[in-house]
Design a protein around this nucleic acid. Structure first.
Lengths: 232, 232
DNA sequence: ATTATCTATAGATCTATAGATAATGC
DNA sequence: ATTATCTATAGATCTATAGATAATGC
């Protein structure tokens, strides 16, 4: 005795809820949004135009009225979509720490923001990964936008602090990799692959890693030999 | 005046080169190998069974004689394919460095091997990335094989060296992330996305990063305050 | 005799379009 | 009048199978 369908009269087939007729720009925006969600989950070739249209509650014909081809739709996304969440605020915050030479705060802020970006904008990062794997040259675009601006900023600070003697005189590119990688790797595992490599909150992870990274950046204490035990 | 096709008589269509009839196991192996190459490039949904069969020079019917469905083929790959390149030798080498407490050598070896794995077994890593994105739960399998064994080994050494006072008393999980991430990130960018974040060879990168990582792992020098300048 | 292989094709699905219809804005 | 929308469908492509054929090993 299973519960029979209670309200057959209200099934989607029976009463096609009168959807509002959206303006061209609104519908386009809606199509893009649902396309982002689906492409980010299934990749380009794993996403069906039918599903995108269905997600918006319209026929496929509508989709192809807005975008000539599936490729066009995909590129419309890749061309315009940036890592959203408060990039400007972030840069400002980093800038503030940089000005007062708060190295630990600087690194912490960097890591926290990377984690936040993956947490809140997972779709974007999945999209970038797919685009990179599928060879849609999008990581290029990413790198030339948010990415490279941040990298530029990072490198400037690193070089500055190296000149001031606060950071170790290593290859700045290596230091950039070192700073950004752990948070990216951790966030990718956690938010994209669903593997937690670390118990505790993102903040815990950021703090823990920031301390370690600062140690890596700090100039080597002067020692005569590897094994010398700093005998005052 | 373009050069006309020179040897029409030898075109593939004209003379169907008598391919050898392979044994079941050989053909199966060949199908798997070409499937790996194609799945790794285009993902599951981006790969056509036709292309796999064509790569082996046989009809699709042959493929479906060996694997009931495309899914079956894919899982046959994911279940059996491990990170190939000399895993045992690698562990032995790491073990040797561990025994003589050559921390820098230990880290260098780890990084060099990670880079080598991506360089020489790119298809495998692409496969894992795709599987993770497409939700084929394969990273799980990966993690339970090569991955987790290596992680186990790493953690043991880290904990040991922490007890011996040679490594900083931080969360071992954080240290593992710290150690492995830069090389993985760098290798992913370079070998999978084709972005070089670093001029120089892989060995240069490994050495540079290893030095930095060792600094991060080393215990903090005793200082009374953050800003103290170690006045003897 | 066994079995690796092919041809041909079914049936599903996918992108894209043509032409008709109905809601909106003037 | 304009235009957002739908239905219906073409044409391509994709997975999978049925049944026939030819190479191999005994």
């Amino acid at each position: 005795m299973n519960t029979p369908p209670a309200i057959p009269a209200l099934s989607p087939l029976a009463v096609p809820v009168p959807r509002p007729r959206l303006s061209s720009v609104d519908r386009r925006r809606q199509l893009l949004n649902h396309a982002i969600a689906l492409f980010s989950r299934h990749g380009f070739s794993g996403t069906r135009t039918k599903d995108i249209a269905a997600a918006c509650g319209v026929s496929e014909a509508i989709l192809f009225r807005h975008f000539a081809t599936k490729e066009d739709l995909y590129h419309a996304i890749l061309d315009t979509h940036e890592a959203a969440a408060g990039k400007e605020e972030w840069l400002a915050e980093m800038q503030a720490r940089a000005e007062r030479r708060d190295d630990l705060g600087f690194i912490r802020c960097l890591l926290a923001q990377l984690l936040k970006s993956f947490r809140e904008d997972t779709a974007f990062h999945r999209l970038m990964l797919y685009a990179g794997l599928e060879g849609h040259s999008l990581p290029g675009i990413f790198h030339e936008r948010t990415g490279s601006r941040m990298i530029e900023f990072l490198r400037n600070y690193i070089v500055l602090r190296q000149r001031e003697g606060a950071f170790r005189k290593a290859n700045p590119d290596a230091l950039i990799i070192l700073l950004a990688s752990p948070a990216m790797q951790y966030a990718t595992s956690k938010y994209i692959f669903g593997i937690k490599a670390f118990r505790g909150t993102d903040k815990d992870a950021a703090d823990e890693l920031a301390n370690l990274l600062l140690a890596a950046l700090s100039p080597a204490p002067k020692r005569s030999k590897k094994t010398s035990k700093r005998k005052a």
